[in-house]
Each structure stands twice: as structure tokens, then as C-alpha cells.
Design a protein around this nucleic acid. Structure first.
Lengths: 271, 271
DNA sequence: AGGGCTAGTCGTACAGTGTACGACAAGGAA
DNA sequence: TTCCTTGTCGTACACTGTACGACTAGCCCT
């Protein structure tokens, strides 16, 4: 299961994210010299180096030289800690993306590559299910601000601007997840992607019926050979990004202001 | 953490996926009348109704009226069970997608919607990290075959066909994940998406500096109001699919055979 | 200076997880 | 009948997040 975020009441989470009530430590407090920031930083460091799987409250407490339950003084629970971690690392986004170009396409491409780099540095971001109900702290908003700036000045209305940013973000996250999954698989099995493919391809060749999957028989081996794997995420990123930007260009150039709102049905995403 | 697939040696997994060695039950075997298929079906049913979180070996065994360790007679471990589950439900794809239209765009759109429906029925698919090293069983290949057929006849070469299918698949999975995450958040908190947004928006309004996030200040509220949430996955799906197909159209119409292989750098997706 | 209260610390406990190990028993083969 | 194969499954281990309550160090007030 993916780790869930956005649990707990919104007001509590928001005041934590914006550090509204940094509680000047009193009583026995200063003993360990802890703070929300120190806890979050240690958690990020742990997740960066050893993965989200290694991030347990006990382990984090040990890293901080403190008992497990002590963490709950600074953070209501693990879900909120993850919120804070996400917001914290997203705040680094400006250091990865400098909105130089005055061509929108170059800006969006740079945005996508910066986002990719971010997932590269903090792969665990992809395992935190924050897509709905994002932790709306300063870090998240900073990234959102820069993303919107990249699509600004294209003639798109506000709703479309948000939609374009969301589309690119989701695309990058999807392809980055491919890399993370592959790295995780390599670490878990000790077999590299190429080795796995070389072990799988010949066995598969003999096991399945070419007449049942004619198109796969024609396409699969060619694609597999070209990628030396069943799936090459970096290729998928380059290919998909080009297609995506082409599609966005159609929207920007051809129909400067088509409100998408009208083309959509009414409500209820899920039955 | 996401559940990992593709562990264990490829040959063993493949023979399981293709049911190469269905072991005619002997000895005390027939006692419970179990089989790989019965185990997999029960696991799918459990994950469908109660989510991947409820799928534990103990719970599954209880559902089948059997001791926990008995399952390991039929399945080497949970990872392989997940492989089998994925392949099993992907095999249902033909019932969702009928490749009628002779317009490629209509075909790809139908493909995307069918895939969306599949994730709707089996949301746990999105929590199984199978993107790299997919379980190459009959079910996976069936979906792959239909997907490739949908892009066939467009003049694209084999590598591009695979890339287009992968792009659409990844896009659908990404937006569907948004829905699943939101549903999960609603179930975990008891607060609907709209309620959460209504509780969050005003607090957020007062907490952050409009001058620090000028574009967000302009765009955010409009987008949020239009979606009654921070993120509306169904909208994102409709919007993104249109852009994606536009971008693919550029590839198909304008440049009938540009081998993407040449535009790409050489190796190593990750450092 | 002395007492009381507050607030940070953390040991223990509970209900879970996947699965290694080994004991057991039932059926077929000799 | 005896043996051996093969499926069954109880127990155990090292984990997880966190509720509860006991403990105590330091600040404030008298």
C-alpha cells in the first residue's frame, strides 16, 4: 500500500505546515534539542538514503537519539510527518528550475526536467499518495507558483493553466515512477534490468502462442531489443514529453481560449 | 510503500503465469480442493472489495478456509501472488474494449477509457508496482496486443507504436491514481473532497502571503472553485487525453516516420 | 526558598505483517 | 503392511504505528 497523506484535520495540518505554533520549548523540553524541523530533516535524510521503507518511527527516533514516542510531541502522527516531508523537499524546487526562457515551450520543458530531477533526488515522493489533498504548505505552493508562471502568458485562462501544469506534473511523476520501480526491483532481486530481460525474453519466446498475439509478436521484440528491457522510463519520458508539448501547442496556438469547462459532463468522478 | 512485483526468478514466475505445471493434486492434496486459480481468484475478490490493504496471507487463507501457510503450497510468496492477480485481471481487458472504429484517434480514445474502467474496477492495480518488469503472462499480453492493434496502421514504426501505447497507459494510470487516492482519503478521514476543500480554502487564504505567490493567488482560487477541490482527476483525464491525442496526431500526420531512436542520448536512466 | 504545575520523555502493550521451520498425517506405491 | 511423497498448518521472529500512563525536569508564583 502507498502511504497516505492528508489524514487529520486540515487546520491542524496547515498550522504545522506554516509553522504557526512553533512551541518555544519549555519544561524538560530543551533536553534533546528537538524541533519539528529537526524531525522532518532527519526523516527526509533517512528516506533519501534508505528509502521510505526504512522510515519507521522507531528508526527515526533512534537516528535522533530519542525514544520512539518522543516524536509524537512534535508531530501528530506519521501521516502528518509525511506531509511535512513532502512540503519540505518541494520547497527546494527553485534551486532546480530557473524560469529563464521567454518561449513557453522551453519553459515547460525545463519545468518537466526540473521536476524529474526532484523525483530523482527524492524517489520516496512518488510513494506518498499526495495527489488528492496535497499538503498546501509553502513548499508545495512554491512549486505550484513556478509551474503556473511557466504557463503564464500563453493566453490560456486560469483553469487551463492549472490543467496544463497538472498534466505535465502527472506525466513526469508517472515516468519517474517507472525508474524508481526498476531501481527498487534491482535492489530487491540483485538482477539488473537487462539481465532480467535477457533471462525472460527467450523463455517467453517459447511459452506463448504467436498466433494469439500477432501484433505483439511483430512489435514486442523490436521494442524490447531497442530498450534492452520491457520498459525504458527515460525513453518514455523523452518521447512522452515531446508528444505532450505538441498537444499543448495545439491548444495554445489554434484555439487561444476554448473554455474546457463546457466540454465536460457534470459531476461525480466515481460511481 | 508500494507492493513490489517481479521478485523471484523469471522462469519460475513465467511457468506459474502460464500455468505450465498445474500439479495434479495427490497425497493429502485434494483435501481442501485448492488450486492456483482458486487462490488467485479469492485474492482478487478480496482486493476488489476491501482493498489491497486487507489482502494479507492470513486473511486470504481464512477466506479460503485454510491455514495461512497452506497458501505457500500454491504460490511461492506474496509477490508472485500479486503478479498472478495483475495478470488475471488484465486478462479481462477484451470485455472492456472492442476495437471497432477505423479512425486511429477513436481507437486510442476507446483504449484509454477502457483502461480507465479497468482501474475503476480494480483500484489496487495502481498500488502494485509492476511498471518495470511486468508479469508477462497471458493477461498482460492480451492487453498489450489490443493496445498495439489500436495504434497499428498509423504508419508508425514498431518502437513508436510501443511508445504511444506506453504513453497512454501511463497517463491513464496516473489520473486514475488520483481518483483512487481521493477515495482512499475519503474513507480514511470520513471527510469528502469538497468538505476538505471548503475547510482548507479559507484557512489557507489567511495563512499565506499573496505577494510571495502572485500567480497562485490569481489562478489557484479560480481553478479550485471550478473543481470544488484542489484536484479533479476526471477533469484531468478528459483534458489530458485531448492534449495527448493532439500531440500524437502531430507525430502521425506531420512526420510519418521519424525514428525517435536517433533523437535520444545513449544510456543509463539513473546515475 | 519552596511548592505546584506544566510539558517533554519514553517503557510497555496490542494487534497486525510475511514467511522460515518443522511436526504431522493422509494417500498411493511397493 | 510398510514406506515415502506431498499437502497442511502451529509456532516463532522481527517488524509496524501508536494509545496509555508513569516519570521527571524546569519554570512560575508565592
Amino acid at each position: 500500500m502507498a502511504e497516505i497523506t492528508g489524514t487529520g484535520d486540515p487546520a491542524r495540518s496547515l498550522s504545522l505546515l506554516w509553522r504557526l505554533v512553533e512551541p518555544a520549548p519549555r519544561g524538560r523540553g530543551a533536553e534533546a534539542g528537538l524541533s519539528v524541523d529537526r524531525v522532518v530533516d532527519a526523516a527526509v535524510a533517512l528516506a533519501d538514503t534508505e528509502g521510505l521503507g526504512a522510515l519507521s518511527m522507531r528508526r527515526l527516533a533512534t537516528d535522533l537519539g530519542v525514544g520512539a514516542m518522543t516524536l509524537y510531541t512534535y508531530v501528530p502522527g506519521k501521516a502528518e510527518l509525511l506531509d511535512l516531508m513532502v512540503d519540505s523537499v518541494l520547497g527546494e524546487f527553485p534551486s532546480l528550475y530557473s524560469p529563464a526562457a521567454d518561449e513557453w515551450r522551453a519553459r515547460l520543458e525545463a519545468l518537466a526536467r526540473a521536476s524529474w530531477t526532484q523525483y530523482e533526488r527524492h524517489p520516496w515522493l512518488l510513494h506518498v499518495a499526495a495527489s488528492g489533498r496535497p499538503p498546501l504548505g509553502p513548499g508545495v505552493l512554491t512549486k505550484y507558483e513556478l509551474g503556473l508562471q511557466a504557463v503564464d502568458g500563453t493566453g490560456l485562462d486560469e483553469v487551463a493553466m492549472d490543467a496544463v501544469f497538472t498534466l505535465i506534473e502527472g506525466f513526469v511523476a508517472g515516468t519517474a515512477r517507472g525508474v524508481v520501480d526498476q531501481v527498487a526491483a534491482e535492489e530487491a532481486t540483485g538482477i539488473t534490468e537487462t539481465e532480467w530481460w535477457e533471462a525472460t525474453a527467450p523463455v517467453l519466446d517459447r511459452v506463448y502462442d504467436p498466433e494469439r498475439f500477432p501484433t505483439v509478436t511483430r512489435v514486442g521484440p523490436v521494442a524490447g531489443e531497442a530498450q534492452q528491457a520491457a520498459y525504458d522510463p527515460r525513453r518514455a519520458f523523452e518521447f512522452g514529453l515531446a508528444r505532450l508539448l505538441d498537444g499543448i501547442a495545439v491548444l495554445i496556438d489554434d484555439a487561444p481560449s476554448t473554455p474546457i469547462t463546457e466540454v465536460l459532463p457534470e459531476k461525480s468522478p466515481w460511481p
